[in-house]
């Protein structure tokens, strides 16, 4: 096995909650609460989860846009958690990010050339060379070099997201963190951007961390997928394994909740509808964090936090009672209800 290009070890990011006149700390948001992951070179690791699960904070902490509370981030074996600001600036040439909102992430007063060339200028390129490169980058993402003289408001959402991608590519990074890159786009345009991301990965040998809430999109683009719930990874597996043999009850419920554009399939499905809402990340439940909504929770789940265990090669799950391969949670819920009744 080769060394992973990016490793995250037991990463924790907590945000203090401050209140009152003296801004005293009254609590802690456990945004990321002990996440360990490894990403191989040229791989796409998908991170899925619902709002508040910590997926965005995880991406931002890897780039040190948020400071980790504890744990380590290793890039090519180098611990970057304590890297100096100068070292971080160099590293950010290799680790880039594309943000979700193509309307908020581009400065409306800068021309597209300025926006895309900015990272180059920050890293000491001369202006002439940087502008030449900008033209090439715009072509690479399916725009025209002439577009460089225009301003963000002249572009549609899909085109803006292409500009954000061009900016991320400028310094020829090795790793790009894509934080919900297609969520704000219309379906027909979303598919264009996904295809572009796949092509760029092939051409430039990129490694992606693809953060999204849409399970169909994540399955489409990822090699492996991590499912997050309340700051932790609930399950991690190869994309097909995760969708065909999900082991965590949360993964089961997520998959069963996604509507599919196929009427016969959609109407024949036995859907598991979870009760209630996700608990607040400032007061995660004891033991397993999913137990308050889990349809098959047992007394043990409230007492002990489940270990993240490898149940088959490359397939990890944090659950005391993982669903056996080939079984559906619906059957288990049925039998446990029958046993209880």
């Amino acid at each position: 096995m080769t060394e992973p290009i990016l490793e995250v070890e037991n990463l924790v990011t907590h945000f203090p909650i401050k209140a009152g006149f003296f801004r005293r700390q009254v609590g802690v948001v456990h945004a990321v609460d002990g996440v360990s992951l490894a990403v191989d070179e040229r791989e796409t690791l998908g991170i899925v989860g619902e709002s508040g699960c910590g997926k965005t904070t995880l991406g931002r902490t890897i780039l040190r846009l948020e400071e980790p509370t504890s744990g380590r981030v290793l890039y090519n074996g180098e611990d970057i958690t304590d890297a100096s600001n100068e070292r971080m600036r160099d590293l950010r040439a290799e680790l880039q990010i594309v943000f979700q909102d193509p309307y908020a992430s581009l400065n409306p007063r800068h021309s597209i050339n300025d926006i895309v060339a900015e990272p180059l200028l920050v890293h000491g390129w001369d202006r002439k060379k940087a502008l030449d490169k900008t033209g090439d980058l715009l072509k690479a993402v399916g725009l025209l070099p002439e577009h460089g003289n225009r301003y963000p408001h002249e572009f549609s959402g899909g085109q803006r997201q292409r500009i954000g991608i061009a900016r991320a590519l400028a310094l020829e990074p090795a790793v790009i963190i894509l934080d919900e890159p297609v969520s704000a786009l219309d379906v027909s345009v979303q598919a264009q951007v996904i295809n572009l991301l796949e092509d760029l990965q092939d051409q430039h040998g990129l490694t992606y961390l693809f953060i999204a809430h849409d399970l169909s999109v994540v399955r489409h683009i990822s090699d492996r997928i991590a499912v997050m719930y309340l700051g932790r990874v609930a399950e991690l597996a190869d994309r097909d394994e995760l969708y065909e043999n999900p082991a965590h009850p949360y993964t089961h419920s997520l998959l069963s909740a996604v509507p599919v554009a196929d009427p016969d399939l959609e109407r024949a499905r036995n859907r598991i509808v979870l009760e209630g809402d996700t608990p607040s990340p400032s007061a995660p439940p004891s033991g397993c964090r999913f137990r308050t909504r889990c349809p098959i929770a047992q007394p043990l789940c409230a007492e002990a936090e489940p270990e993240f265990t490898e149940i088959s090669p490359g397939h990890f799950v944090a659950c005391h009672y993982p669903v056996p391969p080939g079984q559906s949670l619906v059957d288990l819920v049925g039998s446990s209800a029958a046993a209880a009744g």
Partner: peptide, 25 residues
């Protein structure tokens, strides 16, 4: 047709390429 073909499917084979509608609305 274009709209339906643009959606990634939950139960899709590896390596299937999406077939987007070119351009913008």
């Amino acid at each position: 047709r274009g709209l339906i073909q643009s959606i990634p499917r939950l139960n899709e084979e590896r390596g299937v390429r999406l077939n987007p509608i070119p351009g913008n609305p």
